[in-house]
Every structure is written in C-alpha cells, then in structure tokens.
Design a binder for these strands. Structure first.
Length: 471
RNA sequence: GGUCCCUUCGUCUAGCGGUCUAGGACGUCGGCCUCUCACGCCGUUAACAUGGGUUCGAGUCCCAUAGGGAUCACCA
C-alpha cells in the first residue's frame, strides 16, 4: 500500500448527491489506482441539520456504487473516530493550542453587532471584514459566551499549488479572522476540516472547487499548528442544463433515486467518471479500466453539464452487458411493486423477458413497463384491433392455432415452421401474419419478435389469447 | 460589489506550437437491416467566446474584454 491517503467527507444533511458521488468516485479511484487508503468521514458538526438517516443514505449510496472505504464508519481505522461529533475533544485541544500560541483569540461581539457592521461595510462598498476589535480585548462583557477566532496572516500571499487548477495566489489581506469555535462550543467547518485531515494524515484533498476560496485560510491553520500542508485538487462542479448548480429542479439529484429509476451502478459510475475526466476517446469503462487508467492530469478544469440522454445511453449499454439472470433479479421488486407478480417468478423464465426487452430499454423501469402483457391480461388497443384483427385474417389465425396446438416443443424453430406453413397457404407475407398475431397476444403493435413473445407466454396462454382474438 | 475559478460542436470531451480545411461520443437528421418497436450498421449535422499580442507558425503561450460559475455566515 502506498502512503497516499484520501477521503470523502460528506455532511449528513440529506441524501447522497450526484455531485458528492462524483467527488467520492475521484477520491476512490485515486486511492485504488495508487494503492492508497480511502477514508470516509462524516462531517456532522452541524447538529441542527445532521441526521442518522442521512448517514445511512450516504453509506447505502457508497455501497451501491461499489465504492468501499478502508477507514470510516463500520470499518474502523487507526485515526478515528470518523464522525466529527465524536472528535470534539480533539478540536478543543487544537483550539487551546492556538489560543496558547496567540494564533486565536476570544471574540465577544454579538451576531447582531457583526451583522450590523457587515451590512454597513457592504453598503459603503467596502469588503466586510472583521475589524479585530476583540483582539487583545481586556474587558470581559458580562453574560456573553465568546466565539473563538483564528488570527489570520495580515500581509503577504498564500499560494495554493492546486493539482488541477494550477497555482492560485490569494492576497492575505482579503482574509479575515474566521470563527473556529462557535459560542455553543462547536467548532466550525474550516477549522475541523483542517484538524481532521491533518490528524487523519490525509495526503491529498480532492474536493469540489467551491472550496477553493477556503483553501488559503485552511493552509494558514495547518501552518499555525505546525502540520504539513496536504496536496489539494479542486474538481469543477456538475451543472444542470441551465448551467446552474445541479439541484432538484433539474430532476433527480440523489444517487439512490437513480437506483429506483432503474439505473445500474456501473452505468452511473461510468457516466460520472466521464464528467470531467477522460482517457482518449474511450467512453465505456469497466470499474477495473477506470482504476487502471485514472490519473489527475486528465481531469478537466471546467464545469460539466449533467446530460441525462448520455446517461441513458450508457445505462442501456451496461444493461445489455450484465448477465440476464442478474437483471431478472433486479426487476423482481419492480414487478412486485406494480402487482404484476404475486409470488417469486422463475428466474430462468424472467430472463427470457429480459433478453427480449433489454435492447430497447434505457432503464430497468423502462424494461418493466415495456412488458405488462407478459405478466397479465393484455389491454387491447382498439385501433390496432380494428386494423389488424380483421375478418379476413381470422381464418389464417385459425389455421395457425391449429398448427400451434400440435407443437410440443414450443420454441423458435417449430413456431417459425408453423408460420411459414401459414404464409404459404395464405400467400401472405410475414408482416401480414405477424402483426395480427402480435395484436392478439399483446394488445398492441409493439413487442419483441413474435416467436419470442409466443415462447415467453407459453403454449397454453398463447393459444388462449389467440382463440379469444378470433372469437 | 471584492476575491477566485472557468471558456473547443446543443452536451461530454480529444487536442498538451506545425500532423487541425479540429477527432471521438451522446443527441439530431437521413439511410440500411427488418414480423412491429427497438438494437445494430452506415452516413449527416455542428465548435476553437471576442480583441490584441508573442512566434516563421496559435485551438494550443501571454494580456485584456465579454460571458458563465464559485465564494465572501457563530452552514458545510
């Protein structure tokens, strides 16, 4: 194992977001490619919004995608705990250290005062920066619990040598003294993320580029504490079709929603990896190919728009790649949900359904919804009945019924022979015979190949439907 | 508004100074195949944001402008 250590650190305030999955994926791939360690850490210092259900959603999503972590919830590790609410002592220790060294100080300004000064500054067009009035303050106001601020560098520049964006320079004068511990005793994000990454010995921080602006202040904290500064790599965001940050109004954003919509994890991961990463002209990647070829230098710097059509295409590809039996297993719950089956179906039989329908399906849900007539009485489409189940064709169908009744091996070969016999006798072309049969069996004009439909339905059911159609 | 990031077909992207009259993929459109619908196959469509430099030569380097995004909380 190399000494590369990366992490994915979501906050459990909702479901696992598509953007988060992509960030996790890049970290995971980086770790797996170089034989490093992948850490899952739960950032739950926001007590108000964090929930256990969300933690479960994150874990479920990660597992569904096949991203396993080496350290973190359920796995343990030498640098835990891996939930921030269980690390409060560690943060306190570091705050004290900063306080002692003079790199942090107590601030008694109330939120109201701060807000007042903030808006005043904004109104005058000045940057809203904390004026340090509590730095070195000796009078302690009664009845106020202070926050603790980090004393930022006043002069010079802080340089981020970003693995993806390149060298980014920030002027220290734009950074103010950020609050590292709130009055309720809970530390804040920009502080804990540093402590966690430092104490967990994270070597590479790969995260969304919405954090790029936070990086210089974090670097200052690393330095103030004497910790080595990790490498940073800031991934650009995933956008919706209107170039705005991906959100609910662009459709599904939760990874598990995609599972429910009938997407395969290998398809999601394949699609997501190509959003911002490329390997020549290759579009289709197995997990192994991704791991083998993943490097940071082929990550693009610009934001990418999430494109459902391409996802569909990739999902279609992977649906057709999986063993049919596995797809059959995956659609069982969907069939149950719809009440189309009441007991566990025969997987060998269900696999035939999958085989017949998967080519035209972008998702598992589509595959299922293409097939109601294979599970229950078909709904007869009036126009199709009128057009194809004519009086002229009925004698032909009766002949076919007669022939079919004599078939014991109800499979493609014998069925085809029966059709050809009927075609010869009637002088009709395949299309003229197949369409009426299709309508009789499925209620409509769209279905898999007619022999497949017959075979899936089976002899008894096929004959029943055909007889019903000829009256 | 300040700061930071980004800018090749509608979309994802290849391109790392000459091989680019810019390649692939999704999508679109057309065709072939065909028992329907699809799949598949073949073809089509369409882009270097703009303006200056640097260079013998720029999609590729630099600078402006424009546009987009992010961020400026006792959220993460």
């Amino acid at each position: 194992m190399s000494d590369i250590r990366v992490r994915f650190a979501p906050s459990p305030t909702g479901f696992l977001h598509i953007g988060g999955v992509r960030t996790a994926l890049f970290n995971w791939l980086y770790a797996r490619h170089y034989g490093g360690t992948f850490i899952l850490r739960i950032e739950d210092t926001d007590q108000e919004r964090s929930t256990d259900e969300s933690i479960k959603a994150i874990i479920d999503g990660m597992e569904w995608c096949g991203m396993d972590w080496d350290e973190g919830p359920g796995r343990g590790g030498d640098f835990g705990p891996y939930r921030q609410t269980e690390r409060l002592d560690i943060y306190r220790e570091h705050v004290d250290k900063l306080l002692a060294s003079g790199r942090a100080y107590k601030c008694y300004c109330s939120p109201e005062e701060l807000e007042e000064r903030r808006s005043a500054a904004l109104a005058e067009g000045r940057p809203p920066k904390y004026d340090r009035r509590c730095l070195g303050r000796t009078d302690i106001p009664e009845g106020r619990t202070p926050v603790i601020r980090f004393k930022a560098e006043e002069e010079g520049k802080t340089v981020v040598n970003d693995l993806i964006k390149g060298t980014v320079t920030f002027d220290n004068s734009v950074m103010d003294d950020l609050i590292i511990m709130r009055s309720d005793g809970f530390p804040t994000y920009n502080f804990v993320v540093v402590i966690d990454d430092a104490t967990m010995k994270v070597t590479h921080v790969l995260r969304g580029d919405d954090h790029l602006n936070n990086t210089p202040r974090q670097i200052q904290i690393y330095k103030a504490l004497g910790y080595p500064v990790p490498e940073f790599g800031h991934l650009s965001m995933i956008l919706g079709s209107d170039k705005a940050r991906l959100s609910k109004r662009h459709g599904a954003t939760s990874i598990m929603q995609y599972k429910e919509m009938g997407y395969l994890p290998e398809a999601m991961v394949n699609y997501l990896v190509r959003l911002g990463w490329s390997f020549g002209d290759q579009e289709i990647f197995s997990v192994k190919e991704m791991v083998d070829n993943f490097t940071l230098d082929s990550i693009s710097t610009s934001a990418a728009i999430f494109n459902p059509e391409k996802l569909n295409w990739i999902n279609h590809h992977w649906i057709n790649q999986r063993p049919v039996e596995e797809i059959a297993e995956l659609i069982v719950p969907m069939l149950e949900e719809r009440g189309w089956i009441t007991q566990r179906p025969d997987i060998a039989w269900l696999s035939k359904v999958v085989l017949a329908q998967r080519e035209k399906s972008h998702t598992l849900v589509e595959l299922v919804e293409l097939s109601p007539y294979l599970f229950k009485e078909p709904v007869m489409d009036e126009k199709s009945v009128e057009k194809f189940l004519t009086d002229e064709i009925k004698p032909v169908l009766r002949q076919l019924i007669g022939l079919i009744e004599g078939i014991d091996d109800f499979t493609h070969g014998p069925l085809e022979a029966a059709f050809h016999q009927v075609m010869e006798a009637s002088g009709l072309k395949m299309g003229k015979v197949a369409q009426p049969v299709r309508v009789a069996l499925t209620g409509g004009t769209v279905s898999p190949g007619i022999y497949d439909v017959l075979e899936i339905l089976g002899k008894d059911e096929s004959l029943r439907r055909l007889k019903k159609a000829v009256g």
